[in-house]
Amino acid sequence: MKQALLSICAAALGLAAAGSASAATTLETVKARGKLVCGVSLATPGFAAPDDKGRMQGFDADICRSIAAAVFGDGDKVEFVPTNINTRFQALQSGEIDVLSRQTTHTFSRDASLGLDFGPTVFYDGQGLMVPKSLGVSSAKELTEAAICTLPGTTTAQNISDFFRAINGKFELVVFESPDENRAAFYSGRCEAITSDRSDLASIRAVANNPADYIVLPETISKEPLAPAFRQNDSQWGDIVSWSVWMLMAAEEKGITQANVDEKLKSEDPDVQRMLGATEELGKMLGLDNKWGYNVIKSVGNYGEVFERNVGEGTKLGLTRGPNALWNAGGLIYSPPIR
């Protein structure tokens, strides 16, 4: 009994200590640890999923690598922590992870009430619906009275409820905790349609026996800007996350790629010189190495390369750039000037 009391006492003290240990900035913590701890999805092909060699691959994983490259000059100094959709914010709040790069939608209430801030949008997504071609449906509005499968996470359940309420239609919602059960129920015909972010639908379609049998309906029923998140009240760390992402976008705009970044070091373009750290000392202002921009591009390439490698038309997901094209190519991807 006495020992039990002692251990409870120790646990309580440990808890109190954990509460006050947040004095160090995130950058200091990350540097002292020697690696970045990045929260990603459990297994979402194209965004974060281990390949056959066990290396984490995907769009979200590459965002983590770019931040690690900015801090350490080495994109592989990352520990990927798969986070559950329900506890991802708690993992960030508690300091278990340094940054959350997990197809997370930037919304007002998350920004305002969860003690975290969002970086720049890395992927403009929207909720869509996928149906078998054999159903003969060409618009989501024709889906009244249908059963729709979804995951409990995010705001999908609310968006789809709002959509059908707006057109005054009834539907049956079937909610699964596990993505595998969700897919299985859809493929077996338990539900007529499955709803999720369009990027996620592409990922679900990619693993179907015959992907050509399914179509994603044209409606986008919600705006889902996916962005990395970090704890609030740490502007320095927020700046590092944001500018690592913007560096990827600026690099695409300037035509700097993973392959030609060494050549570009000799570029005459003053913008490129500043970005790669050939002139001026921008990196120091962030508390980073002056070659941080060079390191980011050297380790993952530019935004376009990250997109095409993980989710682009050449991959199983087969997504077009759409709104994720550069601003000067008709898209929304726009980096503030790096100067």
Partner: peptide, 18 residues
Amino acid sequence: IAIGYPDLVMVSNTVMNQ
């Protein structure tokens, strides 16, 4: 929650997410 029956935990999970 594993098989999509909306019991207390499943509803709570959706609430938690929102």
